[in-house]
Computed example of a mutant assay.
Amino acid sequence: MKIADLITWFEEWANPSWQESWDNCGWQIEPGVLQEQARILVCLTPTLAVMQEAIAYRATGIPVNLIFAHHPLIFSPPKSLRSGDPIAEMARLAFTHNIGIYSAHTNFDQVQDGTADVLAQILELEQVFPIVTTQPGLGYGRVGNLQPSMSLGELMATIQTKLAPPNLIYSPTVDLEQKIDRVAVLGGSGASFISAVVKTGAQVYLTSDCKFHQFQESRDRGLILIDAGHFATERPACDRLTQKFQSLKIEWVQLSQQDEDFRSFYQ
């Protein structure tokens, strides 16, 4: 499948026009690869480490020509491109090695098998619906039921096992034996949706990048907030996207092994 055909297929599923006004989905760098057979490296964040990984594959005879990322490389238009600047270096390497960079961000968050939907599937939630509906069949986050219900402690252990976050932060509770029936999930930075989650009747909200007072707000509103980290809550969707690309019989596609969490926890 040519890269142009792949992008057409993807955008019929997750149209870039659905992105938020502040976002920058779609082509970040297109160095003239549209008519080439797609050989894709999928990643969460397009970094120099991922670009070097793509270049290393090319050196072994696998001519990777597309980095397909969730996070955009460019959020705001740069005012200059200078030596030593990461975006400038990514652009230089992309054109030098003929590797495109494409981003699917808030458009991918909303769709079936997108970031939130994959989290709901991992936790085996049932009767799932969006936290916030954006248009028919689309929306941010997912809310669903656990059948059978489980204790909060069991849910935390399940999240730890299935997402493997380096750390779990959660609202203070005196009862890890509390039965949980309804859970809300949203990969990445989801604390701004706390009010919407409360309205769904969810008892637990799994997301990331939550601040001190957002934990306070959740506690005061009777919602158990669990922060599993940005990487752990969004990386599974990249894995699922790789599997979907593989089902298209693309010549070569691989999930990046150089994605970075950008956080470490001192033990």
Rank of each mutant, 00 (worst) to 15 (best):
H97E: 13
W9C: 00
C25R: 01
M90E: 11
G84R: 00
C210M: 07
S264H: 14
S171L: 10
A202N: 10
G114A: 04
G201I: 04
V42D: 05
T158L: 12
Q19L: 04
Q121C: 05
Y57K: 14
M150V: 09
A232G: 12
V118H: 13
E154A: 05
P77N: 15
Q112D: 10
T207W: 12
Q19Y: 11
P172L: 11
M1I: 15
M90I: 15
K2Q: 15
F68H: 14
V118G: 09
K2Y: 13
L168D: 01
V183T: 14
K211D: 10
D117N: 12
E251S: 04
V253D: 05
P77T: 10
N107D: 05
G188Y: 02
D239F: 06
Q35T: 15
G114K: 05
Y102L: 04
M90N: 05
G144C: 08
L206V: 15
H213F: 06
S76D: 13
Q28H: 03
M1Y: 07
G201P: 06
A49P: 06
E89H: 06
A54R: 15
C43F: 07
P63Y: 05
L34I: 06
F10E: 01
T173F: 13
F215N: 12
K211S: 11
V183F: 15
Q246S: 13
V128E: 13
I3H: 03
E251H: 03
R235K: 13
I7K: 03
N98S: 14
L138A: 07
P16Y: 01
V33R: 02
D109V: 06
E53A: 01
N15H: 08
H230Q: 13
K179T: 12
F193G: 05
S247T: 11
D175A: 10
Q52G: 12
F212V: 13
I131C: 08
R221H: 15
L6A: 10
T134D: 05
Q216D: 14
D23M: 13
